[in-house]
Nucleic acid binder design. Structure first.
Lengths: 348, 348
DNA sequence: GTGAAAGCGCTAACAT
DNA sequence: ATGTTAGCGCTTTCAC
């Protein structure tokens, strides 16, 4: 037990005593239960205010079997994408009276499962961003994490809802844009190989290739940072392509920077596109044509899916078979700015 | 009570029964209490693993009177500064087995106090980032938030520890750098008036002025975004100053962008400095001279202060008078790059 | 070294 | 409409 050297923390019983009612009544009043005499309710509320009584959430949590908290598991809190997802979840959840507990695995993927389970135990559900986790591991983990909402991936194990960004469509839109401009030789400056969203872009390009056999698309292995983009310039120039699709805005900006130093004019000699539409994209010289990814909305939607799960009749216990296999897809939207134009001489 | 339509959640009693010991023993084993016979301990652990038993944190929290969770209150999760503080706290706290609960007031300062109190009740302590909260409100709130650590501000009410960035020193370093370069007419393109860190920069400049009466420093009211910086160009040029200190890197970059469009050469005609040293700062043209703010470290330090408070003999109850009035200050460090140089003709 | 039992602060049957 | 009471799942005295 807890024979604590307690100071003066006000508990529900203090209020009950002072207001001359039972604990249950105080509890009812505090929870807005209408079945309390208005007069008494008022008196109890006054007493609570006077005593500065604030219900202890832990006690409540234990009694109600829920915490009004949702966990958000991310591989890296330094990554703008996950920061935005987190923000989206946090704000949307707050509107429903829920809070967010963070679980940052700091890129240590071996800890991811443990972290996620831990978070799940402390919360009513988990929003999982685990792009690198193997499908097998995810499948094994999924049941114990229910209710769970997946971001940017799906799983068959449990029919957990997913919120995903259609990176494949985004890159296709970009490729189509370049094609329509008259480019016939394109190059994709790829992201990290381990990146799931890079895989999605690659798949999108494969689709595009099939539909447009006349267009050449080279894939140039690269990374995800500004510097990676900067360092890709030589390969880009060697490729002979006139339409360059960078993995994201950051690499596009790095590329732009190097190209500028070399005196290569964009978009006159080379068209360049980014991906994400980060705030800076509009301020590069020239302003960057890119695909806007509504990532905060992804977080908001993830919360909504979670809320539906939490409110579903199935209840929130582990293992149960569940109905909600919903996948919500967000499509990036093409944002045309100054970094793309018709190719210099060639086609068109 | 809770006559729940419970499914098969494994509790401590299940383990106790199956292992043929008492609840207390299982608890002791799970908590690494050495006073348990090694043989029994092993058996209990095996049973726990077999049953996939995981202690319920809520029950633990209630019994122990603590949650192993710290709340981080921020005015805006979209602001890179707070994102970094959050990240610093989260990672440092994780190393000590603590988790982070987010409270994002979404700039609604009227909710800030309530949010902070709410967070405090759910957690063992609170890291408060509330730059706009009035000193009076903070003073009133502080006692009920204990243990609390303040970021970028102090209060006298409770002697809560603070972790602050010395923006005043940073801007003075920048001014001194320009002065040493030979500039005698400086201009500070200010941030938002409501910004506390802007006030700190202003105060730093006042100090600098006193120490260096021969240097002229104009203050040009402005904002905090890239666009604000862009739009400040006219005023900057009108000022006649040759050394320009922007509120932060973003506004510096906006200014740079406009200056570039006008064909004004930096640093040949005008020297420009930023503040923060965001990752992009090194990639502008020319690369930005700025003051690096170790903001993630601020978050980490905030956690350490919190940990000290949590471990202090005073215990973590409200109202108690406490010893720790420690303020930890981080000084920005000057980062000289290409955007500053000796003035064209004038002095030197 | 181990178990029995008393809580931690609250909610929710159930009875009145 | 209100009170009584039995828990929620765990920790921790206290006695053995």
């Amino acid at each position: 037990m807890a024979k604590r050297a307690q100071t003066t923390r006000v508990g529900i019983s203090d209020v009950a005593a002072k207001a001359g009612v039972s604990l249950a009544t105080v509890s009812r009043v505090m929870n807005g239960n209408l079945s309390v005499d208005p007069q008494i309710a008022t008196r109890v509320r006054a007493t609570a205010t006077e005593l500065k009584y604030q219900p202890n959430p832990t006690g409540r949590n234990l009694a109600r079997g829920k915490t009004d908290t949702v966990g958000v598991v991310v591989p890296d809190l330094g990554n703008p994408t996950f920061q935005s997802v987190l923000r989206g979840v946090s704000r949307a959840a707050a509107l429903d009276g829920y809070r967010v507990l963070i679980a940052d695995s700091s890129e240590v993927s071996s800890e991811e499962s443990i972290l996620a389970s831990e978070a799940r135990r402390r919360c009513d559900g988990v929003v999982l961003c685990a792009p690198r986790m193997s499908p097998a591991e995810l499948e094994e983990l999924a049941p114990s994490l229910y209710p769970m909402v997946l971001v940017n991936r799906t799983t068959d194990a449990t029919s957990s809802p997913s919120v995903i960004v259609d990176y494949g469509k985004g890159i296709q839109d970009l490729a189509a844009h370049l094609m329509e401009l008259g480019h016939t030789r394109l190059a994709y400056v790829a992201g990290p190989e381990s990146s799931a969203s890079n895989g999605l872009r690659l798949a999108g390009l494969a689709t595009f290739r099939e539909a447009n056999p006349s267009i050449e698309i080279q894939v140039l292995p690269n990374g995800s940072t500004f510097e990676d983009g900067y360092n890709s310039a030589a390969a880009v120039l060697d490729s002979g392509a006139t339409g360059i699709m960078a993995f994201n805005d950051l690499t596009a900006m790095g590329l732009l920077s190097n190209l500028n130093e070399r005196g290569i004019r964009v978009p006159a000699e080379l068209s360049v596109t980014g991906f994400d539409d980060i705030p800076f994209a509009r301020y590069t010289t020239p302003a960057l044509t890119t695909a806007d990814v509504p990532i905060v909305e992804v977080g908001e939607q993830a919360w909504r899916q979670m809320r539906d799960l939490l409110n579903s009749p199935e209840g929130n216990d582990a293992g149960a078979s569940t109905p909600e296999g919903v996948t919500r897809t967000f499509s990036p939207s093409l944002v045309v700015r100054g970094s793309t134009a018709a190719p210099a001489s060639k086609a068109q």
